[in-house]
Amino acid sequence: MYGWIWRHLPGPLAVRVAEAVLLAAAVIALLLFVVFPWVEPRLPFNQVTTG
């Protein structure tokens, strides 16, 4: 998977590294700001009962 992405990035090595870093940052931002907030209310961690 990562090899396929690396082979399809255009440009010389320095540009490929910058593009790979930007791509990874975009994926992390998508997870932190969209996916995790959407999933968090659906997780059972806030339904704690004692007794």
Score class of each variant (00 low, 15 high):
Pro12Leu: 08
Val17Lys: 03
Ile5Ala: 05
Ala14Ser: 14
Leu22Tyr: 08
Val39Arg: 01
Ile28Phe: 11
Ala20Cys: 13
Ala14Pro: 11
Gln47Tyr: 01
Pro10Val: 06
Gly51Leu: 07
Pro10Gly: 07
Pro10Ser: 07
Gly3Cys: 07
Met1Cys: 14
Val48Gln: 03
Trp4His: 14
Tyr2Lys: 12
Trp4Arg: 15
Ala24Val: 03
Glu40Asp: 09
Pro41Cys: 00
Phe33Ser: 07
Val15Leu: 12
Ala24Asn: 12
Glu19Thr: 12
Arg7Ala: 13
Ala26Thr: 06
Leu13Gly: 04
Leu30Thr: 12
Pro37Gly: 00
Val17Thr: 05
Leu31Asn: 08
Pro44Lys: 09
Trp6Phe: 13
Val48Asp: 02
Pro10Ile: 07
Ala25Ser: 10
Arg42Asn: 05
Leu43Met: 15
Val15Trp: 08
Thr50Arg: 11
Val17Trp: 01
Val15Ala: 12
Ala25Glu: 10
Leu22Val: 09
Phe45Val: 03
Pro12Trp: 09
Trp6Pro: 09
Val27Pro: 02
Arg16Phe: 04
Gly51Cys: 06
Gln47Asp: 00
Thr49Cys: 12
Gly11Thr: 04
Leu23Pro: 00
Ala25Val: 11
Leu23Val: 02
Trp4Glu: 14
Glu40Gly: 04
Arg42Gly: 09
His8Trp: 01
Glu40Thr: 07
Met1His: 15
Val21Glu: 04
Met1Phe: 15
Phe36Ser: 06
Phe36Arg: 05
Glu40Ala: 11
Leu23Ser: 01
Arg16Tyr: 00
Glu19Tyr: 13
Trp6Gly: 10
Pro12Ser: 11
Tyr2Cys: 09
Ala14Gln: 13
Val39Asp: 03
Asn46Glu: 14
Val27Lys: 04
Trp38Tyr: 06
Val48Cys: 02
Pro12Lys: 09
Glu40Met: 09
Leu31Asp: 06
Gly3Trp: 02
Val34Ala: 13
Val17Cys: 03
Asn46Phe: 13
Val35Ala: 04
Leu13Ala: 06
Thr49Phe: 14
Ile5Glu: 03
Val39Gln: 01
Ala18Arg: 15
Ala18Glu: 14
Gly51Gln: 03
Gly3Asn: 10
Glu40Gln: 05
Arg16Lys: 06
Tyr2Leu: 13
Val35Gly: 00
Ile28Tyr: 10
Tyr2Ser: 08
Trp4Asp: 14
Ala14Tyr: 12
Val39Gly: 00
Val21Lys: 10
Ala29Tyr: 15
His8Pro: 01
Pro12Val: 09
Gly11Lys: 04
Gly51Glu: 05
Pro44Ile: 05
Trp38Pro: 00
Pro44Trp: 07
Val17Phe: 02
Ala25Gly: 10
Pro44Met: 09
Val21Asn: 06
Asn46Val: 13
Ala18Val: 12
Val35Tyr: 05
Phe36Asn: 05
Pro37Met: 01
Ile5Asp: 02
Trp38Asn: 04
Leu43Ile: 12
Pro12Asp: 11
Trp38Ala: 06
Pro37Thr: 00
Trp38Thr: 07
Ile5Trp: 01
Leu32Gln: 14
Arg7Asn: 15
Phe33Ala: 08
Gln47Ala: 04
Phe45Glu: 02
Leu31Ala: 07
Pro41Ile: 02
Ala25Tyr: 08
Phe45His: 03
Gly3Tyr: 05
Val34Asn: 11
Val27Tyr: 00
Ala18Ser: 14
Gly11Leu: 05
Leu23Trp: 03
Ile28Gly: 10
Ile5His: 02
Val34Pro: 07
Gly11Tyr: 04
Pro44Arg: 08
Leu9Ile: 13
Glu19Val: 11
Phe33Pro: 04
